[in-house]
């Protein structure tokens, strides 16, 4: 499954990475090289094999339903590039 320029552009868009002029073309070759290499996985017969769910056998623990966190708006906002009136501020979105 070789990727082309259009695919690279679409993937970059999905990943919200703006590609500078001339940046996409070399990526096409690079990604194709890497993808060709990882595609050897297709050789492996995995019929009846479950995908790995837990690296080391373990069980998901549940926490009790209690309010133990929050109330730290200042800490939450402290690193924000822009905030106003307790909100994060971003370029205006039109829905």
């Amino acid at each position: 499954m070789a990727v082309d320029l259009a695919t690279v552009t679409r993937i970059a868009k999905l990943a919200r990475l703006r590609l500078a002029p001339g940046e996409a073309e070399p990526l096409v070759a690079e990604l194709n090289g890497i993808l060709r290499w990882i595609e050897q996985l297709g050789e492996v017969d995995t019929a009846g094999v479950e995908p790995m769910a837990a690296v080391i056998p373990n069980h998901l623990r549940w926490r009790p339903d209690a309010v133990t966190d929050g109330g730290v708006a200042a800490a939450v906002l402290a690193n924000a590039p822009a905030s106003e009136a307790g909100f994060f501020a971003v370029p205006k979105v039109i829905e």
């Binding site: 492996v44 995995t46 995908p51 790995m52």
Partner: peptide, 30 residues
């Protein structure tokens, strides 16, 4: 580069062939 690869292998139509297959191979490696 890695975000691009990761986004690609998870994108529509490729999940089973790449990510799921890789996690199955991981089971075999374990």
């Amino acid at each position: 580069r890695r975000i691009m690869i990761g986004t690609y292998v998870l994108s529509a139509g490729f999940y089973d062939a790449y990510y799921r297959q890789a996690q199955k191979v991981r089971t075999l490696i374990a």
